[in-house]
Each structure stands twice: as structure tokens, then as C-alpha cells.
Computed example of a mutant assay.
Amino acid sequence: MNPFEMVVIIVAITAIASIYRAKHGIRRDRRGNEYQVDNAENERLRHEVKELKERLAVLERITVEKENSLAREIEQLRDR
């Protein structure tokens, strides 16, 4: 393998690694440590999952309690 081919291979490997890191949102700090980027879309999805878990907890509580508390829970949900 001549030096020109070796340089081309090294550049290709570096380019592929850079594309992979950019696609998956992996960044490096000044010390060279890699970290995952949290963007606005991730935060919005986390908030949505949190809200859905809260709703699921309410529905589970409603199904377990007696019928007379069902009307009370529905009124509390309407007030939100």
C-alpha cells in the first residue's frame, strides 16, 4: 500500500465517523469527551410522555375505585 492510498483510507474513515456522530447527535467537549445532544424535540417528547403517564395513573385509579368516586374524578379532570 503506498502512502497516497493510506491517506485516502484515513480520510474516508474520519469522514464516515464524523457523519455517524452528526447523525446521532453526538458532540465532543474541549476535553474530547463525547456527549449526547438534548434538543427541543427530545424535551417536548419527554414532557408528552410525562403527561401520558399521569393520565394513565388517573385512569388506573378510576378503574380501581368504587363507582361513586368515578363522578368525582371526572369532575376533577374537567376542572383542569
Rank of each mutant, 00 (worst) to 15 (best):
A17L: 07
R28Y: 03
G32S: 05
L45H: 03
E54V: 09
R30P: 03
E48I: 00
R31H: 04
A15M: 12
V11K: 08
V37W: 03
V49P: 00
E54M: 06
M6A: 11
L52A: 10
K50H: 12
V11G: 01
V8F: 14
R27F: 12
I16G: 10
I26V: 15
G25K: 05
K53L: 14
V11D: 02
D29N: 15
A15E: 03
D38K: 14
E48S: 05
S18E: 05
V7E: 12
I19L: 14
Y35D: 00
G25W: 02
A40E: 15
E48W: 03
G32E: 01
R21L: 11
K50I: 08
R21P: 00
V7S: 09
E34L: 08
V7T: 13
L52E: 04
N42A: 01
N42S: 04
E48L: 05
L45Y: 03
A17H: 03
V37N: 03
L52S: 03
E5D: 05
F4M: 13
I9D: 09
A40V: 11
S18Y: 10
Q36S: 10
E54R: 13
E5R: 05
V49D: 06
I16F: 13
E41Q: 11
I10M: 07
R21C: 08
L45W: 02
E48Y: 02
K50M: 14
I16P: 02
V37H: 03
R28L: 07
K23P: 00
G32H: 02
K50P: 01
I9Q: 15
E51L: 15
S18T: 07
N2H: 07
T14F: 04
A40D: 15
H24C: 01
Y35G: 02
R28F: 06
A40N: 12
D29Y: 09
M6W: 05
I26Q: 05
F4C: 05
E5N: 02
E5T: 02
S18D: 01
D38S: 13
P3D: 14
E43M: 09
R31T: 01
E54C: 04
E34A: 05
A22F: 10
